[in-house]
Amino acid sequence: MKLKSLTLILVLSSSSLVYGQSTSFNRFTEELPQLLETDAATVMTQGMTYDFGAKICGRLGNQSAEIIRSKGVEWRKRNDIFFQGASSALNEISERYISVGGEQAKQGYLQSVLVSIAKEANKQLMRQLNGATLDNNIVPPEIACNGLSRLLHDGVSDFKNTPEITRALVAYMQRKRILPAIGASQTTTESRDASTAYIGTVNFVVGRVGRDCLSKLGRKDSSQEFVGVWQQRNSKYLAAAGKYMDMRLKEAQAAGGAESHDALLKTLTSVVGSAGESIVKSWLDRSDKVEACKRTIGLIESGSYDISASTPMFAELESLVMWAQK
């Protein structure tokens, strides 16, 4: 009964949210991206699913029913901070509607979110509990309820163990001081390492595309000028990655001298270069290289490869920027 990220659950119909706002209204911002809304909705949906599941399994009227009830309560307590964060995020997004439709628009948004969450939870329960929902009197299979009980007890569905569905939410909670920064006492983290490697890889790819394609298209600008434009648009991420890498290299130097420093630099360069070469090859290794170059250059110049809320690692990248700005 573990939920995947609800990518589509909150693609809410505009008709349900129109309360006088202009067509240009966008409830999302850089600090309140769509991924944050999705994460928050996923957390609330999973909580509602487990709450409803425990109640439905109570129909068994035996010891299993009591066990799952207690496990549900314990799970809710362990994950309470994530529900606080999800509620805060959705409420903050709802505040965006005040300026275009007043309190009615805000409440309309929240009601639409609640309806979407309830529908998704009901759908999950119906599938997992053999058609049993709060809307009927079907007694669920005891084996399904025992499975839910084990899931809640083992902690595998605790949100601290499911970062793939809470990345943007965790970053938001840390920013709002709802959740302490993970690894706050440590500068080096796996997330920052991965984010730095990602930024370095994209920078490598853009530069290599410029080197391999500009002359083929008869362009007069150099690859340095081409990548420089991309770097300007993504400067805060490059600056954050540069600061973090400088710190990592200094740490390595202090711990093991020049040998450790050079080994770390070689590792990062190798990772970035290998990943970057693979990406460029997949883009440009075509029979019609001119057409492949034209398409790739166009996408880069249009901003399609800029770091944005749609970037897979956006929450981690934003967290790296916030660290660098301290």
Rank of each mutant, 00 (worst) to 15 (best):
A181C: 06
S195L: 06
T196G: 07
K160P: 00
V170D: 02
R175L: 09
P180V: 12
I182D: 04
G155F: 08
S185W: 07
I178W: 08
A171I: 00
R167P: 03
A194I: 10
Q174N: 02
Y172E: 02
V170H: 00
A168K: 01
P180K: 06
P163E: 10
I182R: 04
D193T: 13
D154I: 07
P180C: 02
G183M: 13
T188Y: 15
D158S: 08
G155Q: 04
R192S: 11
V156P: 01
S157M: 13
T162V: 15
A194W: 03
V156C: 03
R177W: 08
G183Y: 11
A171K: 05
V202W: 15
V202R: 14
I199N: 01
I199K: 02
G200H: 09
L169M: 05
S191P: 00
R150G: 02
R150P: 01
P180R: 10
K160I: 13
H153Q: 10
G200W: 10
L148F: 05
E190F: 14
S185Q: 12
H153E: 14
F204E: 03
P180W: 01
V156R: 15
E164T: 07
K176H: 15
S157I: 15
T188G: 01
I182C: 00
Y198F: 12
R177Y: 13
F159K: 00
S191L: 13
A168T: 12
E190K: 15
A171W: 11
P180T: 02
R177N: 14
L151V: 01
T201P: 06
F159E: 00
R175I: 00
T196E: 11
G200E: 10
A184H: 12
T189L: 09
D154K: 11
I199Y: 08
